[in-house]
Simulated assay, not measured.
Amino acid sequence: MTLQERAAAFVALGKRIAQMSDAAFDELAISVENNNNWFTSDQVRFALQGLSAMLEEEKVNAWLGRYEPKEVGIPKRVGVLMAGNIPAVGFHDLMMVLVSGHIAHVKLSSSDQVLIKWLVNELVDIAPSLGERVVFEEMLKAKDAYIATGSDNSARYFDYYFGKYPSIIRKNRTSVAVLDGRETEKDFQELAKDIFQYFGLGCRNVSKVFLPNKELLQAFLKAIEGYSFTCSHHKYLNNYEYNKSIYLVNCDRHLDNGFLLCKESEELVSPIAVLYFEEYANTKELEQKLVGQQEKIQCIVSKEAWYPSSVAFGQAQRPEIDDFADHVDTFSFLQGL
Rank of each mutant, 00 (worst) to 15 (best):
E264C: 10
T330A: 09
K296I: 02
D125C: 11
G336W: 06
T283D: 00
H234G: 04
L28R: 02
A24N: 12
V135D: 09
T184Q: 07
Y236G: 06
L81A: 02
V328T: 13
Y280L: 07
N121C: 09
R133F: 07
S232A: 10
H327E: 10
K284F: 11
F39M: 05
Q4M: 11
T330K: 05
A9H: 05
A142F: 00
M82C: 14
E71I: 13
V269D: 11
V291I: 14
N213A: 12
Y198D: 06
P212S: 08
E215G: 11
G131T: 09
E33V: 10
E295M: 02
R16Y: 02
S265C: 08
A145M: 04
V134I: 15
K235N: 14
Y67N: 10
R16S: 14
L290T: 10
G181W: 06
V114I: 15
P271M: 07
V178N: 03
Q335M: 14
V176F: 02
G292W: 03
D322V: 07
E185N: 12
G90T: 05
E71T: 15
E71N: 13
D256R: 02
I297A: 11
S110N: 12
S109N: 05
K15V: 10
G314S: 09
V97A: 03
V206P: 03
E304G: 05
H233D: 13
Q288A: 13
N61L: 08
V78H: 00
K296E: 15
Q317G: 08
Y236Q: 03
E295Q: 15
V89P: 00
R318T: 14
Q317Y: 02
N250R: 14
A29L: 09
A18C: 04
I126F: 01
Q293S: 15
F162Y: 14
I195K: 02
Q293D: 11
Y198H: 06
D144Y: 00
V134R: 00
E241Y: 03
V176R: 00
K117H: 10
L51I: 12
G79L: 01
I224G: 13
L216D: 07
V206H: 01
A305P: 09
R173I: 03
F210L: 08
N238R: 06
Y198T: 04
K214I: 12
